[in-house]
């Protein structure tokens, strides 16, 4: 495993994508940045004077052999890896908010951005960006965001989290590349935020309705149980969960 540590970069995903386009890079090459320059204030004022409090990393993963139809399973594998990594670090009340946010209680503590490269209708590589709020304690105007420290009351080492996430990524990508789709889906659905709980949603027109999250389809649509025992599938753009 090849780990590249940077002091400052605008986006670890962009950096890794450009690196992978310029030369052949090892599977599981990792880029971590102490500072993301996007975090700077306007007019050149510097806000992040301390060492970075959050983990921002990108991982290069060779995904040749994964069927393009199984695209969403990449999202499932990464969500599970982050979930299980945080669980092993004793972060409590974790869940996966469809499609790939990681929550503790009902606050977002980690986000995932996956960029795939497709050529000749086949998946080639995935650039997996993972951001985890670790030791940040102030989230002004972000009522639905939190951090590991806020949720568990202790300080975390960024490197420890990074290594744990990487180990879990290796584990779940092995499942994916062994075509263990049902195992992956079952685990993902088990940890879904608000699964089997009465929930309120908003549709594209802004109208509200209620239902129960039951699971996801192979392509990643959310399956919601509505009135009259009807299960309907929703695309990401068709539905917003209110919580």
């Amino acid at each position: 495993m090849h780990i590249i540590k940077l002091n400052a970069i605008d986006s670890t995903n962009t950096y890794l994508r450009q690196l992978s386009a310029s030369k052949a890079i090892e599977d599981f090459t990792v880029v971590v940045a102490k500072h993301q320059t996007k975090g700077r204030g306007q007019m050149g004022t510097q806000w992040n004077v301390q060492d970075a409090k959050n983990l921002t990393m990108s991982v290069f993963k060779d995904i040749t052999g994964v069927d393009v139809e199984r695209n969403f399973y990449i999202s499932i594998a990464v969500s599970l890896a982050v979930f299980e990594a945080l669980k092993s670090l004793n972060v409590e009340k974790l869940s996966i908010k469809w499609p790939n946010d990681i929550l503790s209680e009902n606050k977002k503590i980690a986000g995932i951005l996956i960029e795939n490269v497709i050529k000749q209708n086949r998946l080639q590589a995935s650039i997996i960006g993972i951001g985890i709020n670790v030791n940040q304690t102030e989230f002004e105007n972000l009522p639905k965001a939190s951090s590991l420290q806020l949720m568990s009351g202790r300080f975390f080492e960024l490197d420890e989290i990074m290594i744990t996430v990487l180990q879990k990524l290796e584990y779940f990508f092995e499942l994916l590349q062994n075509n263990s789709f049902s195992t992956l889906k079952a685990q993902y659905e088990e940890h879904l935020f608000r699964k089997n709980k009465p929930s309120t949603f908003k549709d594209m027109e802004g109208d509200m309705f209620s239902g129960y999250i039951k699971g996801v389809s192979n392509s990643g649509n959310l399956q919601v149980l509505l009135e009259d025992e009807i299960i309907k599938e929703f695309d990401l753009k068709e539905i917003t969960l209110l919580y």
Binding site: N71, I74, P99, I118, K119, G220, L236
Partner: peptide
């Protein structure tokens, strides 16, 4: 698709 950003490369 589903927050997965797929870059399509030319063949």
């Amino acid at each position: 698709a589903m927050k997965l950003f797929n870059e399509i490369e030319s063949e």
